[in-house]
Amino acid sequence: MNCRIGCGACCIAPSISSPIPGMPQGKPAGVRCLQLTEDNKCKLFGDDRRPRVCKSLTPSLEMCGTDESYAFDYWKTLESLTTN
């Protein structure tokens, strides 16, 4: 499966605790990553500065579903399970 063009759920919905260029403290859940372009593509894709957690993500039907609302709900659920 490939990333759905225009989605960006995995770069917005989850918190990322590791440093990201421009976001040295990482990013909170629900905050758009500064490295996400206007059309929701990662500026750091293929760059060594991309956080390990981001590099480890692989699009899947479980994570992405069939539309971006599913993907956002998936990430919000994961976030709530890991912060409680």
Rank of each mutant, 00 (worst) to 15 (best):
residue 4 R to G: 01
residue 5 I to E: 02
residue 6 G to T: 01
residue 7 C to P: 04
residue 7 C to Q: 05
residue 8 G to A: 00
residue 8 G to L: 00
residue 9 A to C: 12
residue 9 A to T: 05
residue 9 A to V: 08
residue 9 A to S: 15
residue 10 C to R: 04
residue 10 C to I: 02
residue 10 C to E: 07
residue 10 C to G: 07
residue 12 I to L: 06
residue 12 I to E: 11
residue 13 A to L: 11
residue 14 P to G: 07
residue 14 P to D: 08
residue 14 P to Y: 08
residue 15 S to L: 14
residue 15 S to Y: 15
residue 15 S to H: 15
residue 16 I to F: 13
residue 18 S to Q: 14
residue 19 P to I: 00
residue 19 P to C: 03
residue 20 I to C: 01
residue 20 I to Q: 00
residue 20 I to K: 01
residue 20 I to R: 01
residue 21 P to Q: 04
residue 21 P to R: 03
residue 24 P to R: 00
residue 24 P to W: 01
residue 25 Q to V: 00
residue 26 G to V: 05
residue 27 K to S: 11
residue 27 K to F: 09
residue 27 K to H: 07
residue 28 P to R: 07
residue 28 P to I: 00
residue 29 A to D: 10
residue 29 A to G: 12
residue 30 G to A: 08
residue 30 G to M: 08
residue 30 G to C: 10
residue 30 G to W: 13
residue 31 V to E: 14
residue 31 V to K: 10
residue 32 R to D: 11
residue 32 R to V: 12
residue 34 L to Y: 06
residue 34 L to A: 11
residue 34 L to S: 08
residue 35 Q to S: 11
residue 35 Q to A: 05
residue 36 L to G: 02
residue 37 T to E: 10
residue 37 T to K: 10
residue 38 E to F: 09
residue 40 N to P: 00
residue 41 K to A: 07
residue 42 C to L: 05
residue 42 C to P: 10
residue 43 K to D: 07
residue 43 K to H: 09
residue 43 K to Y: 04
residue 43 K to W: 05
residue 43 K to V: 08
residue 44 L to N: 08
residue 44 L to M: 12
residue 45 F to E: 12
residue 45 F to W: 14
residue 45 F to G: 02
residue 46 G to I: 11
residue 48 D to R: 15
residue 49 R to E: 14
residue 49 R to L: 14
residue 50 R to W: 05
residue 50 R to K: 15
residue 51 P to T: 01
residue 51 P to M: 03
residue 52 R to M: 07
residue 52 R to A: 11
residue 53 V to K: 03
residue 53 V to A: 10
residue 53 V to C: 06
residue 54 C to H: 03
residue 54 C to D: 03
residue 55 K to R: 12
residue 55 K to H: 03
residue 56 S to Y: 08
residue 56 S to K: 09
residue 57 L to E: 10
residue 57 L to D: 03
residue 58 T to R: 08
residue 58 T to H: 08
residue 58 T to K: 10
residue 58 T to C: 03
residue 58 T to A: 04
residue 59 P to L: 02
residue 60 S to W: 10
residue 60 S to F: 06
residue 60 S to M: 06
residue 60 S to I: 03
residue 61 L to T: 13
residue 62 E to F: 05
residue 62 E to N: 06
residue 62 E to K: 12
residue 62 E to I: 07
residue 63 M to S: 10
residue 63 M to E: 06
residue 63 M to Q: 09
residue 63 M to R: 14
residue 64 C to T: 06
residue 65 G to E: 09
residue 66 T to Y: 13
residue 67 D to F: 08
residue 67 D to C: 12
residue 69 S to Y: 09
residue 69 S to F: 11
residue 69 S to A: 13
residue 70 Y to R: 00
residue 70 Y to Q: 01
residue 70 Y to L: 01
residue 70 Y to D: 02
residue 70 Y to V: 04
residue 71 A to C: 14
residue 72 F to V: 15
residue 72 F to M: 15
residue 74 Y to R: 05
residue 75 W to C: 12
residue 75 W to M: 15
residue 75 W to Y: 15
residue 76 K to E: 12
residue 76 K to Y: 12
residue 77 T to S: 13
residue 77 T to R: 14
residue 78 L to P: 02
residue 79 E to K: 13
residue 79 E to T: 15
residue 79 E to S: 13
residue 80 S to M: 07
residue 80 S to C: 02
residue 80 S to T: 10
residue 81 L to D: 11
residue 81 L to Q: 15
